[in-house]
Write a protein that binds this DNA or RNA. Sequence first.
DNA 1: GAGATATACGTTATAGTATAACATAGCGCA
DNA 2: TGCGCTATGTTATACTATAACGTATATCTC
Lengths: 131, 131
Amino acid sequence: MGQSADHLTSNQAQVLRHLRAANAPMTAYQLLGRMQNDRGAVAPPTVYRALKGLEEAGLIRRIETLRAWAPVAAIRPGVVVICDDCGTVRGVEAPSLLESLHQRLAAEGFAEARQTIEVHGRCGDCAEDRA
Amino acid sequence: MGQSADHLTSNQAQVLRHLRAANAPMTAYQLLGRMQNDRGAVAPPTVYRALKGLEEAGLIRRIETLRAWAPVAAIRPGVVVICDDCGTVRGVEAPSLLESLHQRLAAEGFAEARQTIEVHGRCGDCAEDRA
DNA sequence: GAGATATACGTTATAGTATAACATAGCGCA
DNA sequence: TGCGCTATGTTATACTATAACGTATATCTC
Ligand SMILES: [Zn+2]
Ligand SMILES: [Zn+2]
Ligand SMILES: [Zn+2]
Ligand SMILES: [Zn+2]
């Protein structure tokens, strides 16, 4: 069930290690490939189960717009910012912004349960590189 | 290339008709099934090409969190609000919210290109039904 | 200790989503 | 007429995710 962050299984730890070592989100099948390199035969459910546990533990997120996974901590409501040049992803806290969205929708009778906010663009470092 | 809304191909019109007739987003393969009912043999690229054209024309959006497609008009940066009970999706304008997010990220040197904002929850009608 | 439950893991197969690549047909027009 | 452009058809394949079943192990309970 809801896994707490202090007790990862070895599959989970291995997946998390790979995600943290990467500088961009990885697809499930990229992770699968890495694990097969490490250990030989590994099947997709092994990866997906680890991803599910890590997500429930708040250690990773699926980046919906990339169909990939990133070790973005559970800034929980939060904004994910993605550089389309270098691939880096980071979480940004924006409580007041999300609160105003919440108010806005509540006023219309909508009971908000969760949001996905992903922003694409170019990060500062990559902008400098172009300059 | 960039299709303008006033000249849809017949495949695009057919896909759009089905999306508008539905009260919830449809997956590409649901659309494929409908088109096969209508016309016999239809293959996935037919559907995906129509979806691409409609998206470029600003007539539909892919709902990333549902991996499905909805006729949400081109509220063009906008928030998509999804009721997880009845499945309805609608676009909400929130210019000031997006502007403040833009400012926030610009201050950190991030040049924003596009956002995906999807909010899940329960709509007013469904809340009443539960009451 | 036997049996019941729960969790993780392995393994096979399959479902579901999306695109590559190549062929054909029609149209506008040099 | 021949060329470029767009849309479409068609086949095959790539990519993403889960169902279903079996096994091992730990933990609890009687
Ligand atoms: Zn490794
Ligand atoms: Zn960058
Ligand atoms: Zn129809
Ligand atoms: Zn509803």
